[in-house]
């Protein structure tokens, strides 16, 4: 095995894993606070991809020619609208079910996911969509024939994921909002009694999660250049697997799970067999959960009697 090939596969896995991690944040935060798998999260990410392309064509039609400025506007639009989606989804599909059985929001989340997916399909058409390549070039190390490389946008993705993870960890650990989140997470009723507006906190978490999905949507669209309305499921389920692998509810866990999942996929597909890489990813998940039932960085659950 040649070293540069191996290193390249690791880097491939890292950039893929960073994407998983970024989307996994939304799953892990929502799960952390209300203990619910938000199946519509993948769809929010998909919508953000559409917003990226739409905002981009509008921005360029106004004659903006500075790429960084255009990117900022696109990011702002995507985050704003997607955050509104997060808020609305929570308000319509989940809040009325609070205090009901644990499975009811799960089913309404699946319904919501269907709604969003077919809404986008009906209004935007079923065609594959794309954006022109904005950020070109890559960083190469090594000789002309034997080198490892990461494109600039892949480097950006990794940087943004790390930054987002750091910022959110800071918010959760150090700020008042974070303390309120953690209180709501531990005991919603008690937090309510202590004067925390738990509904507002939960909405905020949905908005943050959706914004992260928006950032992921923008970056991934810049990276791959194409998307369609069905990207929600395939990426969503992997990101969710990443969140569980790392320990759901834990922010660093989302990152770690994403990177492990991405790298194991890249290595397995690179050196064993591409067909079975997803099988390997799920087997890895099962094995990890058998030995660490709460994921890699998750806190063990103690049952109270």
């Amino acid at each position: 095995m040649e070293l540069h090939i191996f290193a390249q596969q690791l880097l491939n896995g890292l950039s893929l894993g960073a994407i998983y991690g970024l989307i996994a944040i939304g799953y892990t935060m929502v799960y952390g606070i209300i203990g619910m798998i938000n199946f519509a999260h993948g769809d929010v990410y998909m919508i953000s991809a559409y917003l990226t392309a739409i905002a981009m064509s509008v921005v360029f039609s106004f004659g903006v020619d500075s790429v960084p400025f255009a990117l900022l506007i696109i990011l702002a639009v995507a985050v704003l609208v997607t955050a509104a989606y997060g808020w609305v989804i929570e308000r319509i599909a989940y809040r009325p079910l609070r205090g009901s059985t644990r499975l009811a929001p799960l089913i309404s989340a699946i319904g919501m996911s269907l709604v969003l997916q077919s809404y986008v399909q009906v209004s935007q058409g079923a065609r594959n969509q794309g954006i022109p390549t904005l950020i070109k070039g890559s960083l190469r190390i090594g000789s002309d024939t034997k080198f490892v490389q990461m494109t600039h946008i892949q480097l950006l993705i990794v940087a943004v994921t790390v930054a987002a993870m750091g910022a959110l960890t800071f918010v959760i650990q150090r700020t008042s909002l974070g303390r309120q989140c953690r209180a709501t997470q531990q005991d919603r009723k008690m937090a309510g009694i202590l004067g925390i507006d738990t509904n507002r906190i939960i909405s905020t978490v949905f908005v943050i999660g959706a914004s992260m999905a928006a950032v992921a949507g923008v970056l991934v669209t810049l990276n791959y250049g194409s998307f369609d309305f069905s990207i929600d499921f395939i990426t969503g389920i992997k990101a969710f697997t990443a969140a569980v692998l790392g320990g759901i509810g834990s922010l660093p866990g989302a990152m770690l799970g994403g990177v492990i999942l991405g790298m194991s996929e890249a290595l397995f597909s690179g050196f064993v067999n591409t067909d079975y890489k997803d099988v390997f990813a799920f087997v890895l998940l099962v094995v990890v959960l058998i030995f660490r039932p709460s994921g890699l960085l998750g806190k063990a659950e103690f049952e109270k009697v």
Binding site: I92, A93, L97, A104, P105, G111, L114, L116, Q121
Partner: peptide, 13 residues
Amino acid sequence: VLIFGVAMVLMMI
């Protein structure tokens, strides 16, 4: 599919 999804959410609520 859109209507089916809406029906699912509404029935749950």
